[in-house]
Design a protein around this nucleic acid. Structure first.
Length: 292
DNA sequence: GGTAGACCTGGACGC
DNA sequence: GCGTCCAGGTCTACC
């Protein structure tokens, strides 16, 4: 069956897909041309389906091989809308970007939306897997986590959904380390899965929590394995752009762009984008660097 | 509040 | 084939 979901213009599916590296992480699978995306999802009903997402005249279409009941259709609609930020209003950011040559490509290219997973639990885990490692290892660890602990897709058992908190919570650290090669990150992943599974932590509520960014940041920092960089990254995914996800790449770019190649620290990265206020994270994200 | 050292993995490199 | 070095954020202990 096929669902058609409208998007607030301007919108471009390929631009959202390429907004960062998430499309390379299982259970996402991008087509060869980068114009469409599939995602294996375990629905609340327990059904595991592949969502094939393509651009449509007014937004996107989502094709699912199986027939979905009304509740499942509503679930898929909600998840895909969140993943692609279909109803996000970035007009204020576009107004700002229009005044800065380094951001000229933003409004013209419909940039600004950032691809996210359907659940914050998945995005937090994936963010933990980006820390203190190379991107190739992040891809590999995520693939291991999904293939070893995710529910298999009925039509193609070689593909799996992202593991549920309950499924991960039921394993032990030694097994998790051995099966996924997460290294020292394994206890962080396990602890969070157990906290979410038992209801001690409600990550999904944070997606719509009407609280100041500082308070949201404090709650994310309380998660073991989530530090300053990871928190800023997650805030970006949550649509809060007050903080810059400062990593080693940021040092390299800011050094080259603003300091003639001299070594810089977090303060210099922050200072370089301070004038953009609550939009500085997004400005940093889409800044057109001279030497990228 | 700031800092040093440990935490893991896998790729690159030298022998 | 083996050993060593290195990159990558966060945590904990300590000052």
């Amino acid at each position: 069956m096929r669902l058609t979901l409208p998007a607030r213009p301007p919108f471009s599916l390929p631009i959202v897909i390429r907004s960062h590296g998430w499309f390379q992480l299982a259970p996402f699978l991008e087509d060869e041309r980068g114009s469409s995306l599939t995602y294996v999802d375990e629905l609340a009903s327990g059904k595991v389906v592949e969502l094939a997402i393509q651009e449509a005249p007014v937004g996107v279409s989502v094709t699912v091989e199986d027939e979905l009941n009304p509740a499942e259709q509503a679930e898929v609609t909600g998840k895909v809308s969140w993943m692609l930020g279909l109803d996000q209003d970035l007009s204020a950011f576009y107004d700002l970007a229009g005044q800065e040559p380094k951001l000229a490509h933003v409004p013209t290219g419909a940039r600004g939306r950032i691809l996210r997973s359907p659940t914050l639990f998945e995005d937090v885990l994936k963010t933990i897997l980006t820390t203190n490692t190379l991107w190739a290892a992040t891809i590999r660890m995520t693939q291991n986590l999904v293939s070893q602990f995710g529910a298999p897709l009925t039509a193609d058992p070689t593909r799996h959904a992202f593991p549920s908190p309950e499924r991960l919570a039921s394993t032990d650290e030694a097994t998790l380390r051995a099966e996924t090669r997460l290294g020292y990150r394994a206890p962080y992943v396990l602890a969070l899965a157990r906290q979410v599974a038992t209801g001690d932590v409600d990550l999904e509520a944070l997606k719509t929590a009407d609280i100041p960014t500082a308070e949201l940041r404090k709650r994310l920092l309380a998660i073991k394995g989530i530090g300053a960089y990871a928190t800023a990254n997650l805030l970006m995914l949550l649509g809060r752009y007050d903080f810059i996800p400062v990593d080693s790449w940021a040092f390299k770019m800011v050094s080259s762009e603003f300091h003639g190649g001299e070594p810089v620290g977090p303060a210099e990265v922050e200072a370089a984008f301070q004038r953009w206020g609550p939009w500085k994270g997004l400005v940093y994200w889409f800044w057109k660097w001279d030497h990228e």
